[in-house]
Every structure is written in structure tokens, then in C-alpha cells.
């Protein structure tokens, strides 16, 4: 019997915390065994409270500042590359597969870091209305976003499940199940990258335990489900979400400009021209 290597904690509000329930679940890897806190309904609510404050903080930073924080995360991963490769190998990946995945994840983060101060030039525009008006459409982040990541054994897939929302200024609660060890290891580097507390919360557990709350919590403004979940779970999120006209995306795009579109609201402002 392998010993428990490490009991990871969740990363909420800039702090490493256990589940309020005290419950854990086990993830058995090839060489090591981990215990992961099991998110309770109360844990989710706490994460949302943190994300709400985190949204205000993250969104009020300049685009330049946000861009640098994301770039900083890529530097942190670069510095700890070897330990990620070993962890992915322990999840069953071959060494070169693990190395490629980590390098891809670094490239992905750098791509989004460079998009932070540009996306609005791609999504917004002046509208040529028929009249003497200045009319402009620009975009704002939708707000607190819950993302269920794809649960694949890939750091690259993991970062692709929170970067699109973060890039446009949303705060994110990222939820993992099978790949929680990777996500919670990443939270250590997130913690060293100057993210404001609550802007990116990393929690884990059984999604089925909280699916109803993800749909029903009115402060979660957007639920983005990158994993392929059951029709039953989709129905629950959709039905509960409809009570507050929640934005919900199932397996949204993970690259290109289309990846950020689910997370923005378009605001159009008119003003007359005159002498």
C-alpha cells in the first residue's frame, strides 16, 4: 500500500484551504497517492463570495497589468517544468508527451497574456449608424465564471479552461475532478504570480455534488463546461440556470478569438454630434 504523498488543499481567495466538510477523495497515480479536499456546497458558496470580490479587483487592474500577471504565470511554470513533467508521467504520460504538454501550456498562457490588451480591439467597433451620432460597441466581462475543466491529463487543456475568461476580466472558479492533482499543483504557481485574491480560485471534488448549485447560484454569472458531461447534468444546469437567465456554455472553443466570446457582454453607447 502506497502512502499518501500529499494532501493538497484548494486554492480559494489567495489561500490554501481544506474543505469545510473535512472530506477528501483519493487520486491514485502510478507511483503516488493523493488526497484531495472534496468540495461541498458550502465550499462552492465560499468560492463564489471570494470570486465576486476577486472580480472587482481583477477587472479594475489595467489590461497591461493583467497581461503581465498572466505572463508571470508562464514564467513560474517554466521554472518548475521538471516537476510538472514528473507529475504528468505519474499520470501515465510518456516523458516526451508530458514535456510537449507543459511547453504547449506555456505557449498557451503567453498567447493569452498577449491578448489581454488587444482583444477589445478585435471585438469592439464604431458602428456606422445613419445619423449624426457617435456610436460605439465595446465589451465588458460577464463576471464571476465557473468553469469545469476538461478533466484530461493535460496542463495545456487545464489552462485553456480558465484563460479565455480571465483574459477578458472575469474571475474564475476552476473545478477539477480526475485531474485535481495537476490543478492544485498549478495553484501554487498561481499563488506566486500576483493574481489578486479571488480572481482565480481552484477547487476540486465530484461535480455531481455541486451541479445543481452551479446552475442555481445567481452570483455565478456564467457556467462554462469544458468537460463532456451527461445530458442529465446539462439539463440540471440549464433548468436551474434559467431562473436567473444564466449564461451557460457547453464545451466552448478553446483557441482563437472565438474562445473569449462567451465571456463578454457587448455594451453600445450612443451620443449625438452637434455644434
Amino acid at each position: 500500500m502506497t502512502e499518501v504523498k500529499k494532501t493538497y488543499k484548494h486554492y480559494v481567495d489567495g489561500k490554501f484551504v481544506r474543505s469545510e466538510s473535512g472530506k477528501v477523495y483519493a487520486i491514485d497515480l502510478k507511483n503516488e497517492k493523493y488526497e484531495i479536499p472534496l468540495t461541498s456546497k458550502k465550499d462552492l458558496r465560499d468560492a463564489v463570495t471570494s470570486s465576486k470580490a476577486g472580480f472587482t479587483k481583477w477587472n479594475s487592474l489595467t489590461m497591461y497589468n493583467k497581461s503581465q500577471i498572466l505572463y508571470r504565470l508562464s514564467e513560474m511554470i517554466e521554472g518548475n517544468k521538471e516537476s510538472y513533467i514528473i507529475l504528468l508521467q505519474d499520470h501515465g504520460l510518456r516523458k516526451n508527451e508530458a514535456k510537449n504538454d507543459i511547453e504547449n501550456s506555456i505557449n498557451t498562457i503567453i498567447w493569452y497574456a498577449g491578448l489581454v490588451d488587444k482583444w477589445e480591439q478585435l471585438t469592439g467597433n464604431l458602428n456606422p449608424v445613419a445619423g449624426e451620432y457617435f456610436n460605439i460597441s465595446h465589451q465588458e466581462p460577464i463576471g464571476v465564471t465557473f468553469t469545469l475543466n476538461s478533466n484530461s491529463i493535460s496542463l495545456d487543456d487545464l489552462v485553456k479552461s480558465f484563460l479565455p475568461a480571465l483574459t477578458v476580466g472575469c474571475s474564475v472558479i476552476n473545478f477539477s475532478e480526475k485531474n485535481a492533482v495537476i490543478a492544485l499543483k498549478l495553484s501554487e504557481d498561481i499563488n506566486n504570480s500576483d493574481f489578486p485574491a479571488g480572481s482565480l480560485n481552484i477547487i476540486a471534488g465530484k461535480f455531481e455534488n455541486i451541479v445543481e448549485d452551479v446552475g442555481g447560484h445567481v452570483e455565478i454569472k456564467h457556467a462554462a463546461i469544458y468537460d463532456d458531461i451527461s445530458k442529465e447534468s446539462k439539463t440540471i444546469i440549464g433548468e436551474k440556470g434559467s431562473e436567473s437567465v444564466k449564461r451557460i456554455s457547453f464545451q466552448p472553443p478553446t483557441s482563437g478569438l472565438s474562445s473569449i466570446l462567451p465571456f463578454i457582454e457587448t455594451k453600445t453607447v450612443w451620443h449625438p454630434k452637434g455644434k
Binding site: N127, A130, G131, Y133, N135, W270, H271, P272
Partner: peptide
């Protein structure tokens, strides 16, 4: 400084 203005080009 205006209200209820609409245009097909305006989202």
C-alpha cells in the same frame, strides 16, 4: 443625451 435611438448597424 439622447434616448430610444436604433440603427441596423448598432447592436
Amino acid at each position: 443625451n439622447t434616448f430610444n435611438k436604433f440603427d441596423p448597424a448598432s447592436p
